[in-house]
Write a protein that binds this DNA or RNA. Sequence first.
DNA 1: GATTGACATGTAAAACTCGACACGTCAACA
DNA 2: TGTTGACGTGTCGAGTTTTACATGTCAATC
Lengths: 183, 183
Amino acid sequence: MSIRIYDVGMSLRMALLGLLSVSGPASGYDLTKLFESTINHAWQARHSQIYPELNKLAADGLVTVEEEGPRGRKTYTITEEGSRTIREWMLTTGPARSARDEKTLRAFLLPTLKPEEALEVLRETVRECEAKLAVLEEIERRPSRPRTAGFGRYALDLGLRHTRMMRDWAAETAEEIERASRS
Amino acid sequence: MSIRIYDVGMSLRMALLGLLSVSGPASGYDLTKLFESTINHAWQARHSQIYPELNKLAADGLVTVEEEGPRGRKTYTITEEGSRTIREWMLTTGPARSARDEKTLRAFLLPTLKPEEALEVLRETVRECEAKLAVLEEIERRPSRPRTAGFGRYALDLGLRHTRMMRDWAAETAEEIERASRS
DNA sequence: GATTGACATGTAAAACTCGACACGTCAACA
DNA sequence: TGTTGACGTGTCGAGTTTTACATGTCAATC
């Protein structure tokens, strides 16, 4: 086991430990789907990244394979050390946190377009946000499964706020551009 | 020049073309700093990634080196083809956009902590947001330099909204946890 | 004249991420 | 009985991103 000095690249690790911690024992397959259905807005990972990371996690003693089911299914459980590790990470306040959002990047690059084009992009953004909001609000209404109950609460709220913020920004910016181009 | 079929990995390319498009001719050094001071919240890139990408961009005819100054400075200018390329990219609506935010990830993993610990993390988040807001509001008040004037407008507004949203979420979630743990 | 710091560009190794390939199981339904 | 689709784990190659290394110029200040 190699000690990692820097925080970079710990995110996937911590996401997996966090999911295992809150949802209880799960397989790589379960975690891949959990990833998609919960923290997908904040972080993405394919199974091709998740399976190797789980093996590393097991090698480092942060998780254990307690049970092997049919179809080669391996059920991972977080260990004491794993819990300690994620707790420390969560309580560590670092100044530099990676943040990448192509949607926001496009918003920043809006001035590269002519006003009419920018307007159309913004209106499309509003439509996308509305569609996403509809999905999130539907999830909010639907009673959550017990396994992810506490987990999804804050995540969903943040997702809703983020999407509404984006929608409002796009709508108001569109209005502003429209006003400016009319005068 | 190889044609890229997928959109993935185009972000850095487009960010550079966008910066060159809005701010006018600039060197790799300028772009590195522009990156930091403008779209850093949406995308990050070190000079070790920017310099090679500029060379590729030049090889592909999307930018040209019009001028070589002292200290080996190379001033890049976006070409017609470069402008066409970013315009097409901006107008292309793809469903899958990469989004990674460690701050949000941590928010999602809050339920791994005990209520008192989560509370402390949330309060720290509020403090960080307040500090960031102070910086952004100061920038808002300060008259912008002509080179990034139009560019920074929307970016700054979105940054302010995002930070306020995060602050409000953290504050209200903290309140909620406090209420729940009191009862 | 020497030192410091901003300017300026680059490369190499390691780690991270994605899409594609690859293999195999089990249950349900036709 | 065959086929389909969800379950389930894994590897590989290519591209992206980071950290560290590497080199040198120019202006200002001591």
